[in-house]
Amino acid sequence: MKTNAVSKTYDGRTVLQMPAVDLAADTVHVVLGSNGSGKSTWAKILAGVLAADGGTMPLTEPCRVGYLPQKAYAFRMSMEKNLRIAANDREREDRLLAQLHLTELRKAPANRLSGGESARMALARVLMKPFDLLILDEPSAAMDMESTMLAEKAILDYKKETGAAVLLITHSIRQARRVGDGLFFLKNGMPVETGPCKEHLDAPGTKELKEFLEFYGG
C-alpha cells in the first residue's frame, strides 16, 4: 500500500512533511518520535480524520483503513455492544474479549471502565473488523505491563489473520523491539530514519535516533 506525500501547516508552522512511503502488508510499521514530532498528525491524515494541506489524498488507492485514536470514545452502552458497533461477529467478539481478559466485563457499562480496561475495550473494538491498513495511536499508553503484552499478542494475531499493514505509534522502544517489523523515526514532522525496525534500533544510523534511544532508555 502506497501513501502520497502529505504535509500539514498550522498558522504558518509546518508540523508535518511526510514523503510518499510504501506500507507493506502483513507488517507492523512502528512510528517512533518525541511529542510534537508529527506522528499523530500523520496517523490522522492517513485515517482521513484530518485533511492534509491542499486536500491531498493520503493514499494512492482506496482501501479499508481502521484507526484507533489516542483517546478512543467509550460509548454509553455495555462493552459487548461497543464491540458490535464495529461488527456483529459473535465468534470474533468472544475470542477478542477472552484474549484481552475482558470476558467478565462484557456486560459492564463501557463508560464506567478503568483507563486500562477502556483501552483494551477500544483495541478489541477496532480489531473486530478486517482492515487493509490499521492505524493504532499509542494503544497501550494507559495499560499496565500485563495488559500491554495481551494487546501486543492481539495485534500480532490480527496482522497474521488479516494480512493488514499495521501502523503502530508508540513511545515504548521495548514495544517497538517486540512487535515492530519496520520503523519510521520522525523528528520535526519529517522521517529521519526508516527501515527494518530491529536493525535500526540496534544500530541507529543517525545522531537523532541515537539520542532518542539514549533518552528513552532503548
Partner: peptide, 20 residues
C-alpha cells in the same frame, strides 16, 4: 470530536455516527 474520530476509525457511515 472523539465520537466522530472513533466512528471514522471504525469505518462507520455518517448516519450511524449521528445515531451514536
Amino acid at each position: 470530536g472523539p465520537v466522530r474520530e472513533t466512528a471514522k476509525g471504525l469505518g462507520l457511515s455518517r448516519m450511524t455516527t449521528l445515531r451514536l
